[in-house]
Design a protein around this nucleic acid. Structure first.
Lengths: 215, 215
DNA sequence: CGACGTTTGTGAACTCGTGCACGAGTGGCG
DNA sequence: CGCCACTCGTGCACGAGTTCACAAACGTCG
C-alpha cells in the first residue's frame, strides 16, 4: 500500500501530469482540499478514473473529505520525478529546433534547454535564443557535464535514426522524437513521439467521414 | 467489402498515417508490392496488427503476394481524406503560433496554413512567414471564404477555452490544441491535443524510476 | 494440372484499461 | 455518543484493442 511493488499503468502515467497541472491551479486559488469529482472535471476525465489513478500512488485521500491539494501535488511531483529540473538537449538547430528552444513552456515546467546541437559546423558556436549551439560530436561530453538525461530530436526524418544512435552512445535514455519517422532505440530507453502533421491527418479522417463532400 | 458500415477503431485510425508514410517511402523506391511483415517493420508495429488494420479498409491485399503499394496508398489516402489539401488556421500569433506557421511539415503533407489569427490588434495586418495575420473576429468570415475546416490553437492556456468557443461558433469542427490545458468542445467536434511539456514529464517519470538518484 | 510455398484475412483467446457499484472510513451535528 | 452525509478505495464486469493461429487464396514450378 505505502510503497513500491505496484506498477503504474502507462495510461495512468500519461494522466498524472494533467492532474498535476490541475493541482497547480488549485494551489494558486488557495484551495486546500479537492474531491475526485472536482479534479476529474478539471482534468477532463471521470471521477472513478481519478480515484483509481491516484490510488496507484498510495492512499493519499481522506474519505468524506477529499485530497489535500498541497500534499497530493508534492507526492505526485515526487512520483513523476519533478522535484528537480531536468536539463534537456535539443538535437537539430533548424526551424523546429530553434522554435522549441525559444518555447518557454519547457523551462517553465522544469525542463530548461541546456544546449542545442547540430551536425552543421556553420551553426555551431553561437547562441539561439540564449541557448548555446554545439556540434553533435560534443554531445557525450555535454551530456556528462550538464547532467542531461533527456533529448529532443528535431531533425529532418532522414537524420533521426542516426541521431538516436548517437544519443544511445552518449548514454541518454529518454528521447522525445519530433521527426516524422519511426526510430528504434535500445531496450531500456524511453521513446515518445510527437508528429504534428500526423495529428492533422487523424483529424482529417474524422472530418472527411463527417462530411464526405470534403469541403 | 468496399464501402461497408465498418467502424474503424480509433487506435487503427491513429496508425494509418504511419502506414501511409511508409508507403510513400516505398513508392519512392519504386517498390511495387509489400508484405504485411515488411510494412510492419517500417511502421514499427507487428505484422498481425498491420493486417488487421488494413482489413478495416477492405481486402486490398493478395494472398501469397502482399499489397500493391500504389493502390494501397491511394485507398488509404482516400480513407484519410487526404485526396485534397485541408487549409488550416492557426490561432495565436505568439512564439508557438509563429513557429508552427513557419514549420514546413504542415504544407508538405497537405495542410497549408491559410491564415494566422490573433486577438491583439497590433499583430493584425502584416504577414508572418508569408501567412497573413487577421483579427480573431474575422475568423468566421475567413473560415467560410478560405474553406477552413481545421484549426490549431497555439495561444496561452488562459485563452484556449475562449478560442475553442469562437471556433465552435465559426463552424470549425476539427481542432488541434497546443495550449497546455483541458478544453471542452461541442459534441461532434474532434479534438486532439499536443502538450510538449507533458511528454517530457512522462519521460521524467520513467527516467526517475529507472534511476532513483535523479541525476 | 496438381502440389507446394507464401501471405492474407479473420475468428478466438487474451491483455489491458475503464466504469460501476458499493463497502469502508471520516467529519459534523444534534 | 450515535447518526448521517460525504467521499475515498477497490472488486468486478465489461469493452476495446492486441496477438495468436490457421484456413483460404494466390502464384509458381515441375
Amino acid at each position: 500500500m505505502s510503497d513500491r511493488s505496484r506498477r503504474i499503468p502507462e495510461a495512468t502515467v500519461a494522466r498524472l501530469p494533467v492532474y498535476l497541472r490541475s493541482l497547480a491551479e488549485l494551489l494558486e486559488d488557495k484551495t486546500a482540499t479537492v474531491s475526485s469529482e472536482r479534479l476529474a472535471e478539471m482534468a477532463g476525465v471521470n471521477a472513478a478514473k481519478v480515484r483509481k489513478d491516484l490510488s496507484y500512488l498510495g492512499s493519499y485521500g481522506t474519505r468524506g473529505v477529499g485530497y489535500d491539494v498541497e500534499y497530493l501535488a508534492f507526492q505526485m511531483s515526487r512520483e513523476l520525478g519533478l522535484t528537480h529540473d531536468w536539463p534537456v538537449v535539443i538535437v537539430g538547430a533548424g526551424n523546429l529546433g530553434q522554435a522549441l528552444a525559444n518555447y518557454g513552456g519547457f523551462r517553465d515546467r522544469g525542463f530548461p534547454v541546456a544546449a542545442l546541437v547540430d551536425a552543421s559546423r556553420e551553426k555551431v558556436g553561437g547562441e539561439i535564443h540564449g541557448v548555446p549551439v554545439h556540434h553533435i560530436d560534443d554531445l557525450p561530453r555535454l551530456a556528462a557535464e550538464l547532467g542531461i538525461a533527456i533529448a529532443v530530436i528535431a531533425t529532418p526524418a532522414s537524420a533521426a535514426q542516426a541521431v538516436a544512435d548517437v544519443l544511445a552512445e552518449a548514454g541518454i535514455r529518454s528521447i522525445l522524437n519530433f521527426a516524422p519517422t519511426v526510430i528504434s532505440v535500445p531496450e531500456g530507453t524511453s521513446l515518445r513521439k510527437v508528429d504534428l502533421a500526423l495529428e492533422l491527418q487523424i483529424l482529417s479522417f474524422y472530418q472527411a467521414h463527417r462530411d464526405p463532400s470534403g469541403a
